[in-house]
Nucleic acid binder design. Structure first.
Lengths: 259, 259
DNA sequence: ACGCGCGTTTGGCCCTCGCAAACAATTAAG
DNA sequence: CTTAATTGTTTGCGAGGGCCAAACGCGCGT
């Protein structure tokens, strides 16, 4: 099984510092030394020498007096995406599901106890949602995430909640462990997860899990849309069936495609 | 203008170490502590504590006893790609050029004195080439790179050659500075760069520069194919015109799209 | 049962990370 | 034009931590 996220043992503080600077740099969308020093709480001198080191290694790039995250991340990203065994397979199915539903369709996998969006396509009538490829969200508040959680061992789910909590986003967000465990049980029975305005008010979503035990990849495929279109039989039956069968195709082919 | 890549001043050795470990991890496509220690020359204990720190910060993920580059890089990648002002614009034009030519068409930008592929599309008859999104190549050996070099100030070109050299890939690769400077002059006159089996034998390529002075982005758009199809007027005139006008569209629209 | 490989932990010397403060180079204001 | 307040960069120095060697514990194959 998977290892817990924070194991004991020694850490390298200087590296910790660099990681914080990198995170800040990405969140601030580029910044100067002083800004970063203020943001991270380190001295200007410290930030400066870290940035110089990261620039030498081409993880950041210096343009005039501001620093930026470099395009080296694109290389790492492409590599690590392909490292997800069912990446391409899932892509095809999300595309098909998009054509079929005309809505926003997505694919997510679990990592570090969070969900990472890997594919997002918008159909003809699709609304605009904030999520994007590479975006990370807690698992408890989306249909995709709940579908994933439903497949994980109970102890792993508890670890994740301990680490990430159950942050409330809307009145409908599940914030109690008992309520969540019940829901996961229901999801396991039906093999679909519903999100009824739990992430964002006005937004509904249906997702089905795509568990690939060979590569230990927990994923889910979904379609999302406005409550006005996601209701009644279309929501509970039609779209549920659509994501379920899409997930099924991925799972079945996964074992075939194994390299 | 741009700053030179290696400025003086202090570096953080521990961060240097982590960067080397990260690079090794990506190149080895995942590895264990001992493998990484052997590869990088650091002790197992050192590698271990670095990996633990990077895992805490979610830049690497531990699966059982092997470590991997994490999907956090996807987030950073998506952000930094969008940071290239003409990213989406170039994407559209590469697509159009692909439809028009039926060949492999690409878009590259300069960073750290190298060329980074950002877009790649394959047309109906397109051959398979090794390059991929995020891949980095020296500038002197591709049509894309030479197109970019032709737009850079002479001193910057020299800096780049000092840093990266003029590695020979085929008998046709340009390996002398004088020969390169002559060629860059020709490219500036014609506004197109040709690659006649300088990267790979049997492969030809035409590229035109897309310089965006506002954002200081030096890029190029290209089409590549086999010598059998890339010859005579089609190569020197037709395809040259195609990439030139595609580049022109990008440059013209760049100033409009500026946010 | 044994040994070999792995990842992990520990002890300890030496180095270096990180801060404060000075410095240089722009820019803004008076 | 001068002054003041920003930057980014460099330096001195002390306390803290990085790195290695060696030991430890585990799993696997023999």
């Amino acid at each position: 099984m998977d290892t817990q996220d924070t194991s004991p043992g020694r850490r390298i503080q200087a590296v910790q510092t660099s990681c914080e600077i990198l995170d800040a740099l990405r969140n601030m969308e580029g910044a100067g030394v002083s800004e970063l020093a203020a943001e991270t709480g380190y001295s200007k001198a410290t930030v400066h020498s870290h940035l110089a080191t990261l620039a030498d290694n081409e993880f950041v790039v210096k343009r005039g007096d501001t620093y930026e995250v470099s395009l080296k991340f694109v290389d790492f990203s492409e590599y690590t995406k392909q490292n997800v065994a069912i990446y391409e397979l899932a892509k095809q199915e999300v595309k098909k599901l998009t054509a079929e539903t005309g809505e926003v369709c997505q694919f997510m996998v679990e990592e570090h106890g969070q969900g990472v969006y890997l594919h997002k396509f918008r159909g003809e009538n699709a609304i605009h949602t904030a999520s994007y490829t590479g975006d990370r969200k807690d698992l408890h508040c989306t249909a995709l995430g709940k579908a994933i959680l439903s497949q994980l061992p109970h102890e792993r789910v508890e670890e994740i909640i301990d680490r990430r909590g159950l942050t409330k986003h809307t009145p409908n967000t599940i914030t109690s462990r008992e309520r969540l465990y019940e829901e996961l049980e229901t999801i396991r029975e039906q093999n679909v997860a519903f999100d009824d305005e739990e992430t964002l008010e006005g937004l509904r979503c249906v997702a089905a899990p795509t568990t690939d035990r060979e590569s230990n990849t927990y994923g889910a495929i979904s379609t999302s849309g406005p409550t006005s279109r996601f209701k009644g039989d279309r929501f509970r039956e039609e779209l549920a069936d659509a994501v379920r069968s899409a997930a099924n195709v991925i799972e079945v082919n996964a074992t075939q495609v194994r390299r």
